[in-house]
Design a protein around this nucleic acid. Structure first.
Lengths: 327, 327
DNA sequence: ATGAAAGCGCTAACAG
DNA sequence: CTGTTAGCGCTTTCAT
């Protein structure tokens, strides 16, 4: 039988309440008592029963992390970082996949609310107006979305990152850029598009926005298909994410279009594959580790301090970008 | 305030115990009572308090899934499948990463044991002799490892899969095959190697085993490097996993060695990248969904029935395999 | 500085 | 079929 607080108390010759408090406020006790209790606990291999603690304190010691799609290689890494940090804070991590469905996201949050201390939701697809209701049920921390100053959130610095991308491309002589967007329903995709558009406008570079049906490798291939068929190949393409960029590159290669010779390609995320592909993909590295860790830290934070943080993206230059071909 | 069983009981005009039992053994009640209770619960939006349930029943309604490395694309998919199934069974899923460290795996299991109903451990690196002790603390389900008939486990059918690979290759005229192994410390890697060796022996094909330092893209590159330097390029290579195979192919391509023209390459897993690479990688698709789901099912199963299951691998033929070059 | 006692929300004998 | 009662292991007033 697993030892309980009572067993420890008995072994240490003190009451249960003393034993309980020794763990919570050790300084309040005379060293002799404290040592005796701690020794007894160690001796017996005592571990508090979380269910009993949760029942009385209302805190469960678990935090849920919601991702739209665990299969997107960015998220496992983010989850991993959050989890390490949460573990350091003494919390367990529940991971759940929302299947990129706002309804499922909302219902998961509502369902988990009573049983977790907080929910970290990544690239949330929630409608703005569902947020207050859900946030009332459980502490919500947003990753990759800014739902306003009253909710804790961590973001990547898309505006700065996109300015770097545009600067790189204009420096290489590109005078017009095609942007392959993500889904319009996604806050993150809209933000990224806007950041890019503004950066380009700031540099005086005209932009063509193309909508791949799906932000995936296949979507990128399809987009390449469209570009190829249109007859007028851009000299530079910036994609919403690496998967799209990689799909585009693959299809271009099949069609005999040289990258970066004829078309330069830039991605976003820096997934492992971006390094492995040839040519390597130039991309904005998404600070997943920092975001995951910081999100975990925000869980325990007082809502008072400004709960929003922005992390820089890192431009990683590889072989997929080069001088613009003669127009 | 969240409604409790008492609130529901009061609203329905029955006792708490009746209320509690209506949820557990509905048939035992006269329809009138049952309906009244259920209606009251629905009306109030009652949800049982898991901590209280856990405190008394000893069952927490959570299951942990341990993976050696969430970053390996096979595992998120497996976790996802397990999680869906677990959710259908009414359980929450805790995911943890062992960092491919047996010590961490063991300590995680011990740490989680009191707070979960079961631990599903994938590609376990545990020593055989640590298993009994841990299995005594919590129900353990193994994925990708067979720790003997007394523990529930799910496996892929490596022997059959490897026979298919060998048959494909010999059919293409290959008369000698190089195998790039995984880590010797891993049960899964040893099993896969043995399955391959036996399949080759069965076909009368000699095998050269090469040990990449790491079962990764880089490891595959390094292996290619070695092969290149040795001066005698094999006509066919089978790798422990897709990442190795892809790294090998990439390095070979850089060196101007045609795949499959000069060397045929076969992987294992069928990660998304295997499809995206060019040429596409011929590989054995790992039945992650089936394994994840079945592992989840095994959690609630009586230990009596034979608790081991084997699932077929599917040979996916893509562009990386072709006729052997003239010897 | 320490102990006694109440009770968190629920389940499970035990009665009836 | 349904109600009464006694806790599960822990934290937290309230005393002392």
């Amino acid at each position: 039988m697993r030892p309980t607080l009572r067993d420890v108390a008995r072994a240490a010759g003190v009451s249960v309440s003393t034993t309980s408090r020794v763990f919570r406020e050790p300084d309040r006790f005379r060293p002799a008592t404290r040592e005796r209790v701690l020794a007894a606990a160690a001796e017996l291999g005592y571990r508090p029963n979380r269910a009993a603690q949760a029942l009385i304190t209302g805190r469960t010691g678990s935090v849920a992390v919601l991702v739209p799609n665990l299969t997107n290689p960015i998220f496992p890494e983010l989850v991993r970082a959050a989890q390490h940090r949460l573990h350091a804070h003494g919390s367990f991590t529940l991971v759940a996949d929302t299947d990129e469905d706002p309804a499922q996201e909302a219902s998961l949050i509502a369902m988990l609310a009573p049983d977790v201390d907080a929910v970290i939701t990544c690239s949330s697809l929630l409608d703005d107006d569902q947020i207050p209701d859900l946030a009332a049920q459980v502490r919500l921390v947003f990753v990759g979305r800014d739902p306003g100053p009253s909710h804790p959130s961590v973001l990547a610095d898309d505006p700065a990152g996109m300015r770097e991308v545009v600067a790189l491309l204009t420096g290489l002589g590109h005078r017009r850029i095609t942007y392959l967007a993500g889904r319009a329903a996604s806050w993150a995709a809209r933000r990224r598009l806007q950041a890019f558009t503004e950066a380009a406008a700031g540099a005086g570079v005209p932009v063509d926005v193309v909508d791949p049906n799906h932000p995936s490798f296949e979507g990128g291939r399809a987009a390449a298909e469209g570009l190829l068929r249109s007859g007028t190949l851009p000299t530079a393409v910036v994609a919403f994410n690496d998967l799209i960029a990689l799909g585009l590159t693959a299809r271009l290669a099949e069609a005999g279009v040289a990258v970066p010779g004829e078309v330069s390609v830039v991605g976003y995320d820096d997934v492992e594959f971006a390094r492995m592909a040839s040519p390597g993909l130039t991309t904005l590295a998404y600070p997943r580790t920092a975001l995951g860790e910081r999100a975990a830290d925000l869980v325990g934070t007082a809502p008072a301090d400004d709960p929003r943080r922005v992390f820089p993206l890192t431009l990683v230059e590889r072989g997929s970008t080069g001088p613009a071909r003669a127009g």
